[in-house]
């Protein structure tokens, strides 16, 4: 261990109990006041925009009508939730949401790490830079544009059909976007195309923090390139991987909205409608704000359960965790 680092932590440990033990707030404030003040706006932002709207949840227990006062609303108890769980469409939508979210999570993570490793292993700097820039650029395109690119490429007169027919691999052009069995995978692959490069950045950052001495030692021990990746690079990014995984599992109920909304059509509706689209179609568009709120609560609760579950599992396995 680095000698200076150990001295510092020793001093720090010695100081800490004394300061905190006295609970001298004025001292704490004198030392950290500026930092505290600086964090207030963020705290306020969270309270106003993240916690404040929770009061809107009461709407889920009403039959909310716009333009009426709070006291004039009709209270209906758990009716909205009963309606939600009694709806057959809801379960289909739930299936689609979880399926697409899982596909996106697995493929997105896998390819982000793959791209990061490939870029990390490349030694030619200009090439590395170029590849990195090109690969993360799609992240900055809005889905409205990206979806049109996908539709164009996979269209009946698109590049994919041109190529397959031109090479004689297929006799007829295929309506790719009209194939229900392929829709989830089109979502998955377009997600990879759009996010893998950007997702790689964070893993690349984690890789740069791996001690080069480890690689040198492995080299001396005769480890090949793949062995170095397997035994040093991957374990080195594991903490980041686990944290990101926990965070992403919390997002499983949000398989996306724009992506599916813009890519779907009547041929694939069975497989394309995700929770957010369902809430829009059967909630907001029918002015069923209460129903939409109930669905929103359901989604939040599932997300919280998922994230705490993932965190607990990670903790049991002795991994880095969030909480």
């Amino acid at each position: 261990m680095n000698p200076t680092e150990s001295t510092f932590s020793a001093q720090h440990d010695a100081l800490a109990p004394a300061t905190l033990g006295r609970r001298n707030w004025s001292t704490i404030f004198r030392n950290q006041g500026v930092l505290m003040l600086m964090s207030i706006p963020f705290l306020v932002h969270l309270l106003v925009f993240r916690y404040g709207p929770i009061f809107g949840w009461v709407m889920a227990f009403q039959r909310y009508r716009p333009g009426r006062g709070f006291m004039d609303q009709e209270w209906v108890g758990l009716l909205q939730f009963q309606t939600l769980f009694a709806d057959a469409t809801f379960y289909r939508v739930l299936r689609n949401t979880l399926a697409m979210a899982s596909i996106k999570l697995v493929m997105g993570t896998f390819f982000a790490i793959l791209v990061a490793i490939l870029i990390n292993e490349t030694r030619n700097r200009p090439f590395k830079r170029t590849v990195q820039t090109i690969s993360y650029l799609p992240h900055f395109i809005s889905w409205v544009v990206a979806a049109n690119l996908v539709l164009e490429v996979l269209g009946p007169r698109g590049v994919v059909n041109d190529m397959l027919v031109g090479l004689g691999l297929m006799q007829e052009r295929v309506l790719w976007m009209g194939r229900p069995d392929l829709f989830w995978w089109i979502i998955g692959w377009s997600h990879v195309w759009k996010t893998a490069g950007f997702g790689a950045i964070i893993y690349l950052a984690a890789m740069t923090s791996i001690d080069p001495q480890l690689y040198e030692a492995a080299d001396i021990d005769g480890a090949g390139r793949l062995q170095r990746i397997w035994h040093i690079t991957l374990p080195g990014i594991k903490p980041v991987f686990v944290i990101l995984l926990i965070l992403n599992i919390g997002q499983l109920m949000e398989a996306g909205f724009e992506q599916q909304y813009l890519l779907q059509n009547s041929l694939v509706m069975d497989y394309s409608e995700v929770f957010t689209i369902y809430v829009l179609r059967y909630g907001l568009q029918l002015q069923r704000y209460s129903f939409a709120a109930a669905a929103g609560i359901f989604r939040s609760v599932v997300s919280i359960v998922l994230i705490i579950g993932a965190n607990t599992v990670a903790k049991r396995l002795g991994q880095e965790t969030l909480m």
Binding site: T89, G178, S266, L267, M269, D270, R281, Y282, L286
Partner: peptide
């Protein structure tokens, strides 16, 4: 809306 959505899914089929 429900009837419409079912029709929307089946007409192309």
């Amino acid at each position: 809306t429900r009837i419409g959505d079912i029709r929307r899914r089946y007409i192309p089929q």
